[in-house]
Design a protein around this nucleic acid. Structure first.
Length: 438
RNA sequence: GGAGAGGUGGCCGAGCGGUCGAAGGCGCUCGCCUGCUAAGCGAGUAGGGAGCUGAAACCUCCCUCGAGGGUUCAAAUCCCUCCCUCUCCGCCA
C-alpha cells in the first residue's frame, strides 16, 4: 500500500495549480490566461513573495549545514573546545529554527494565494465569462411534437408514484425528494446499463467513500473556491462529496503509477451531496436541483499527451449513453470564465426538457490536465523521472436529471411513460403506467 | 467503545542517540558469463525542495524513516499529540 495521503496544503511549495516555474518564467502568459477567466491577481507581488521565501529558506539551510558540520566534530572534542563548539552549534541551531519558521510563514502566505489560482484554460475552450458564452457545438435527436399538453417531471412523478417532493420537504426540508416505485427500478436499470457499457470500455466500477477528508477536496480543487457548496461533518472532520470525482481522484494520491498501465479508467457510483448555496429560487420545482442525488461518474488518469483525446472519448461515451436513451440533446463547450477552478476545458451535455422548452445540463465532462494531479501528487514513472499524470472526469449518468429527461421526453398522451429499448431489459418493464390504469 | 501490537525505500525486513537516507533480501535496470533455458558474477536502483546551468546532466546543500510538535550540539532511534493498520473482546447494518 502506498503511504497515507500527506497533502501538505498550506505551506507546501507545490500546493498551487500550475507549475510554479510557470509563474517565474511566463508571468505574462499566466496574466493573459487569468484574464480569459475574468480574473486579476497581483502576480508581481506573488513573484516577489516567491523570490523572498526561497531566499529566506536558502539562508536558513546554510546555517543548518554549518551546524551539522560542527555537530559532527563535537564528539571528538573535549573540555573547553567542546563547550564552545556546543555553544556555537546551539547558536546556529537557534538561527536555523528562526529562519525556517520565517520561511514557513512566507510559504504559507504564498500557498494561500497560489491555491486560489485556477487551472489555465485550454485555448480551445470557448471565450467569455458566463454560462451564456458557452458555444453549442452540436445537436442530436429530434424534439418531439407532442400534440398534447406536456407534463413536467414533478407532475408525472407524483401521478405515476415515482417522486414525492412534499413528504421529502416534511422530513428533510427543501430540495430533497423521495424516489420510489418505478423510479427506483429505473435508477438501478440506468446504473446497470451504464456499468455494462463502461466495463466494455475498460472502466473499473467503484463504489467509493462519500465522506472524505479536507485533503481530497483541496486536491481536487473544490477547496478553497467552492467550499460553500460542501456539507461538513465537523465532529469528525469529514466532508460529504458533491461527486465521486473527489474520492476517485484522491484514490491514487501520493502514488507513482506505471506508465504502461495508463490510462486508468474508473467508474464510480455514489450519492452526491450539494448545499446549493446561492441557488435560492433557482430550479425550485421537483428534483432538478436537489441536495442529494446518485450518479455514475467516469474518471481517468492518463498520460499528458493523451488527455485531449481522452476528453473527447469521455464525451463520446456520454453522448452514446444519452443517445441510447433517446433523449434529444446538445453539446456545449463551456466558456473559459465559466469553468471551475480545476478544469482547463469542459463540455456539458444539455438534454431537452420539454416542460421548460429548453436544453438543461445533464452531464459535464472536464479535462483538469495536471491541476488535480499536482495537488494530489499523482505521477507516473518514466526513464527521465516522475511526471504528473493528467486527470479527467465526466458524468456517465446523473440519476435525477436523467430521470427527468426520460420521463418528460418519453411521456405519452395517456399519462404513461415509455421506457427506451436500451433500458427495458435492465428495468424489466417497457412502460410506466399510472397506478389506477395499470 | 475496552485491551494489546505496529506503521522504515517498488516490496519484505534490520536498525532503537552521532559518517543511517538507512544492513540484508526480493524485484527492477545495465553489463559480463554460460552454445538455449535456469542458475551465476559485477554495478546501479527512494521522493521532494533550493543552489549551480541558456536548459539539462553532473555537482553542492536542505527536508522526508505515518503526520505534527518537543528534548538535544546531534533523533528513524527519547518524550507528547494526532492519524492509520492489525489482533482479541463488546456492540452492530
Amino acid at each position: 500500500m502506498p503511504g497515507r495521503n500527506t497533502w501538505v496544503g498550506y505551506g507546501n511549495t507545490m500546493g498551487g495549480m500550475i507549475d510554479i516555474a510557470w509563474l517565474r518564467e511566463h508571468p505574462d502568459t499566466l496574466r493573459v490566461a487569468l484574464a480569459r477567466r475574468g480574473l486579476e491577481m497581483d502576480l508581481d507581488g506573488l513573484i516577489r513573495l516567491d523570490v523572498e521565501r526561497r531566499q529566506v529558506r536558502m539562508e536558513a539551510e546554510q546555517d543548518r549545514a554549518e551546524q551539522k558540520r560542527l555537530g559532527l566534530r563535537i564528539r571528538e572534542l573535549a573540555g573547553d573546545e567542546k563547550a564552545s563548539a556546543v555553544a556555537e552549534a546551539s547558536d546556529l541551531a537557534a538561527r536555523y529554527r528562526e529562519g525556517v519558521a520565517e520561511a514557513d510563514r512566507l510559504d504559507r502566505r504564498f500557498s494561500v494565494l497560489w491555491a486560489q489560482v485556477p487551472n489555465l484554460a485550454d485555448p480551445s475552450s470557448a471565450d467569455g465569462l458566463t454560462e451564456e458564452d458557452g458555444v453549442e457545438i452540436r445537436r442530436w435527436g429530434e424534439v418531439r411534437d407532442f400534440g398534447f399538453p406536456v407534463q413536467d417531471h414533478r407532475r408525472l412523478g407524483s401521478d405515476l408514484g415515482m417522486i414525492d417532493i412534499e413528504r421529502a420537504a416534511k422530513v428533510s426540508g427543501s430540495r430533497f425528494g423521495y424516489l420510489m416505485g418505478p423510479a427506483v427500478r429505473l435508477e438501478f436499470a440506468l446504473v446497470g446499463m451504464v456499468f455494462d457499457r463502461l466495463e466494455g470500455y475498460g472502466f473499473t466500477p467503484f463504489v467509493p467513500p462519500v465522506l472524505v477528508r479536507e485533503e481530497a477536496l483541496y486536491g481536487t480543487g473544490f477547496f478553497p473556491d467552492d467550499s460553500g457548496q460542501v456539507y461538513e461533518i465537523p465532529h469528525d472532520g469529514l466532508y460529504l462529496v458533491g461527486t465521486s470525482e473527489v474520492s476517485l481522484a484522491a484514490y491514487h494520491s501520493n502514488e507513482v503509477l506505471d506508465e504502461d498501465r495508463l490510462p486508468l479508467r474508473y467508474a464510480g457510483f455514489s450519492t452526491c451531496f450539494r448545499r446549493e448555496a446561492g441557488a435560492h429560487g433557482k430550479d425550485t420545482a421537483g428534483i432538478f436541483r436537489v441536495h442529494q442525488f446518485d450518479k455514475v461518474e467516469m474518471f481517468a488518469f492518463c498520460h499528458p499527451e493523451q488527455s485531449q483525446a481522452e476528453h473527447e472519448r469521455l464525451l463520446a461515451i456520454e453522448e452514446e449513453i444519452v443517445q441510447s436513451l433517446e433523449i434529444p440533446y446538445r453539446v456545449v463547450n463551456i466558456a473559459a470564465g465559466d469553468l471551475g477552478a480545476s478544469a482547463a476545458k469542459k463540455y456539458d451535455i444539455e438534454a431537452w426538457i420539454p416542460s421548460q422548452g429548453r436544453y438543461r445540463e445533464i452531464t459535464s465532462c472536464s479535462n483538469t490536465t495536471d491541476f488535480q494531479s499536482r495537488r494530489l501528487r499523482i505521477r507516473y514513472r518514466t526513464a527521465q523521472g516522475n511526471r504528473l499524470v493528467h486527470t479527467l472526469n465526466g458524468t456517465a449518468a446523473a440519476i435525477g436529471r436523467l430521470l427527468i429527461a426520460l420521463m418528460e421526453n418519453h411521456q405519452q398522451s395517456d399519462g404513461s411513460i415509455l421506457v427506451p429499448d436500451a433500458l427495458q431489459s435492465h428495468a424489466g418493464f417497457d412502460r410506466i403506467r399510472p397506478p389506477d390504469k395499470a
